[in-house]
């Protein structure tokens, strides 16, 4: 859109490659084509402008709804062998599992507590007992990775509690948490590393970092030693928060370490990344928008020096942004 006259009403939508498929409610008939990173969903033009009471249209709608219904009717089952059985622990609002297996996720999620920290104390099994935070449990239950159980009672014959439903997991693990910015999609598939910072309920106006996020395959991430996260995300409720004040932003940024981008990055990237930055996840009734707030690094960069750009900088690629320089 580099050379588009500002005053011309755009007649066509954004270029196809810029469309974020999650921005619109997609037709579940295409679910079969949207797996992995390989998404082949028709970009535009599949939907109609308005209802016109034709049989074709209502049949298509019925098919779409049926496809959605079928997709959502999926049942989570666990093969008896190799099932990861987790048990809800009401007092700590966490769940634990003994030596969970069956998914590579367990290499990156959960933690074994030390003697003093384990809510069940230091019995002989403490070393095999892996604890999961509320968000982790829900994620694992939603994936169908763990078989979550209520605490066993004396009359559960096989020492396993009753199976916990997805609904029960939501009610128990999220129900009590006030100030949990929301039930957000914390498992954005590009960032399968999970929340670390156990959140402290923030009822005051202060905005805090809710999650540290590592990219999948992050070299620095180990359960024992996290290393610096790739992103920090603060969750904000769109309906209960006004635009953050400078004071709120300053105190939020003050909690972050000084982390400028690498010196060989492109100038524009470096400015955008800033000295420190945080992503605001604004949640409106289940819809999430991400905003990056950064302390722009104008003090570090010499904007008047045209030489010394990073190796990746393309001349032509930035021409369209030129009007920013004149201001």
């Amino acid at each position: 859109m580099d050379d588009v006259d500002e005053d011309v009403i755009p007649r066509s939508g954004p270029p196809v490659e810029d469309i974020d498929l999650s921005e619109e409610f997609q037709d579940f008939r295409f679910l079969g084509t949207a797996t992995g990173n390989d998404v082949k969903i028709p970009k535009r033009g599949e939907k109609d402008f308005e209802p016109h009471a034709t049989a074709l249209q209502s049949n298509t709608l019925a098919t779409s709804r049926q496809a959605m219904h079928n997709a959502l009717s999926f049942q989570r089952v666990h093969a008896p062998k190799g099932v990861a059985l987790a048990t809800f622990h009401p007092d700590s609002n966490m769940a634990y599992a003994y030596n969970p297996k069956g998914s590579p996720l367990f290499a990156r999620m959960g933690q074994v507590f030390s003697k003093g920290e384990d809510p069940l104390g230091d019995d002989g099994l403490r070393g095999q007992r892996m604890w999961f935070l509320p968000e982790e449990v829900i994620y694992l239950v939603e994936r169908g990775t763990v078989d979550l159980r209520w605490p066993a009672t004396e009359d559960d014959e096989d020492e396993r509690g009753l199976p916990m439903s997805l609904q029960a997991a939501y009610a128990m693990f999220l129900g009590e948490q006030q100030g949990l910015g929301a039930l957000i999609q914390w498992y954005d598939p590009t960032d399968t590393h999970v929340p670390t910072a156990p959140q402290s309920p923030s009822n005051d106006a202060e905005i805090r970092v809710t999650y540290d996020v590592w990219k999948p395959g992050s070299a620095t991430f180990k359960k024992s030693d996290h290393g610096p996260p790739d992103f920090r995300i603060a969750v904000v409720d769109a309906r209960e928060t006004t635009a953050p004040s400078l004071q709120q932003l300053s105190s939020l940024l003050a909690t972050l370490p000084y982390e400028p981008s690498k010196t060989d990055a492109q100038l524009y990237q470096k400015l955008k990344h800033g000295y420190k930055n945080v992503i605001l996840a604004i949640v409106d009734q289940g819809v999430v928008s991400y905003l990056r707030i950064s302390d722009a690094a104008f003090g570090r960069e010499k904007l008047y020096e045209r030489a010394g750009r990073g190796p990746g900088a393309k001349r032509g690629g930035r021409g369209g942004r030129g009007r920013g320089r004149g201001r």
């Binding site: 498929l21 679910l31 990173n37 939603e142 994936r143 598939p189």
Partner: peptide
């Protein structure tokens, strides 16, 4: 829909 589709967990186009 705010949940995850267990049959296709690695995408965020379709939710459950």
């Amino acid at each position: 829909l705010i949940g995850l589709l267990p049959q296709a967990p690695q995408q965020n186009v379709f939710s459950g």
